[in-house]
Design a protein around this nucleic acid. Structure first.
Lengths: 340, 340
DNA sequence: TTGTATGCGTTATCAT
DNA sequence: ATGATAACGCATACAA
């Protein structure tokens, strides 16, 4: 089955050498116009499909980049991937998409697979932590082109494309305090060993401290990046005694905020009247929610494009510097925080 | 740069033949335990990474499947892809993800690229139409393993994994008529040349006809699958004269419904009091919308898994039959239709 | 159990 | 402008 026509078949058919066929097919300058025309015609006629596997073996380049993400659930990653693929497509690259399922071992496993497939470079939104730094330092030692996006790993000499997590988190908490006068603010956190979770938490903490607001230990609830965890975390918060009950909740991402919303509704409370809620991501439907969700807008598409471009530049030898790029997020005020 | 260690290097290092190394690395039975152990150790020590490009060239198999989707915007495709990748991962396959951007020429282009990369098979949610049938019949003639999911192409002798678009569309319109007594129902349609759009429209029409309800020409508004088009289409509907004004709107998918929602709110109308709205997809946040959106739940994850499994079975020679599989969707009643 | 020769389809290199 | 040869890294087929 499959395609059996090779450049040799075309060559034989025309009584010329395979090399000439190769040259013609690759638009090299040094081939007679007439023969080139013939070659292209018979190639089409015979149903020739170039074999990029063989090509990759000889030129030592696959025109493929690997992408590793935790999950495809919230809208950040789909948008980022669209950006990644857009740039890849323009540069005649394809992408192999893999996901780690928030699992460190699986992440290592898919990276190994990508390396074996000899992708020209890898874009990673990692779930690995400091303990596992050596996995990537080893890879970097072999000069493998790597770019981290969104979830980076501190301590790595590598290109990052991320956002200003800490500052923007601080800003949105500032807004809750300064503009709405809330003082009891809880934070539903992601795993603290992950850089983005940690940074966002730091932003929350620094805002509270700057306003001389005490943070009750019960206000920082560890959760995950998903809806279920957000739901459970919020139930915990809502079961706190009256005097500890938060007046507002900030969540590590929108998925957690969705879970929080459900929990708040289930408790027959109103947003923002009884409790305000702000998220992080700016999922597409946020503005249609009840109430519309105030959140941090992450430029997912742009981050994807940027990361992709940097990686391809590295692959093409057009970039040698190592940068830690922050693409700024901004706050989107809607009704869930009490605005309007 | 990159990895330069091959099985030959390992062989030389150990003073044995490359073939023995190959056998050991592939867990073949006929290799001495001691030498195998040595080989595995030195392979690891030398940082050997198997080269699947070379492997693919010899065994004529890439353990890669191509996936072609229109876009990654709504939540159907991300979910479906998670299903696809889940099954692929279990079977040691990776996926190359490409998108056509709802553009037929680009779809052809990415398929060509996938074929050149010699993916073992392709999963397609096509935007091609009948006119372009030959593109796929040609591909099928070369015995290329192909499975269509969600958006199939009528007239093709190929495996489809889709949903019962027409019946379920009819059912949800039945619900609007039977349970809510709406009689003026509009339909925001996708491109009619695409199978799913056509089928869903047929479902709408057949329900209306069965109930002896006349369909005003102005009630079927052509749009697209996206939010903007849904918004524009709805604005058209809302500008109809009083006697023609629809009492309910059914949209080809949830994205269009989101646009419709915005348009309705912009017109200061209430859902479902002034106008009811139902969608198709069951996007994750539908239940949190204001009001929660009644819609058709498509089992995206299951469809992805099923399609992926079928393709891999074909690739592995475990399946030879051609099936047109419909995975049933079901209706999710929420408040936007008037329920509760 | 191990080794040798050969080929997968393409391109680089050197030749003509 | 065109061709012959070798090489990319691995696995198949056969031999020892």
């Amino acid at each position: 089955l499959k395609n059996r026509i090779t450049i040799r078949h075309i060559a034989k058919e025309l009584g010329i050498s395979a090399m000439t066929v190769s040259r013609a097919l690759n638009n090299r300058a040094n081939v007679d116009k007439k023969t080139k025309k013939k070659i292209l015609e018979t190639a089409k006629m015979m149903g020739y499909k170039p074999n990029h596997v063989a090509r990759s073996l000889t030129i030592n380049k696959t025109y493929t980049i690997g992408v590793v993400i935790p999950k495809l659930t919230n809208s950040f990653f789909p948008d980022a991937i669209q950006g990644i693929e857009e740039v890849a497509f323009e540069n005649d690259f394809q992408i192999i998409l893999t996901h780690s399922s928030e699992n460190a071992d699986r992440e290592k496993q898919v990276i190994e697979a990508l390396v074996s497939k000899r992708v020209d470079g890898i874009l990673i939104s990692t779930v690995l932590t400091k303990k596992e730094l050596s996995f990537y330092t080893d890879l970097l030692d072999t000069n493998y082109p790597l770019v981290f996006f969104d979830r980076w790993l501190p301590g790595l000499e590598v290109n990052n494309v991320r956002t200003n997590d800490k500052e923007i988190a601080r800003k949105i908490v500032d807004h809750l305090i300064d503009d709405h006068k809330y003082r009891k603010i809880a934070y539903i956190a992601g795993p603290d060993k992950l850089s983005i979770s940690h940074e966002r938490k730091e932003g929350y903490i620094s805002s509270m401290k700057e306003h001389n607001l005490e943070i009750d230990d019960d206000w920082i609830v560890s959760a995950n990046f998903d809806e279920e965890a957000g739901y459970e975390a919020t139930k915990k918060l809502l079961s706190l005694p009256e005097n500890k009950m938060p007046r507002a909740i900030f969540t590590v991402n929108d998925s957690a905020a969705f879970g929080a919303m459900e929990a708040i509704f289930d408790a027959n409370l109103k947003i923002p009247d009884d409790i305000a809620l702000v998220g992080f991501t700016d999922d597409k439907q946020d503005k249609l929610l009840n109430p519309p969700l105030t959140t941090v807008h992450q430029p997912a598409f742009e981050m994807g494009k940027r990361a992709s471009q940097i990686l391809i530049d590295i692959i093409n030898g057009k970039s040698t510097t190592i940068e830690d790029i922050k693409i700024k997020s901004n706050i989107v005020l809607r009704r869930s925080c009490g605005c309007k």
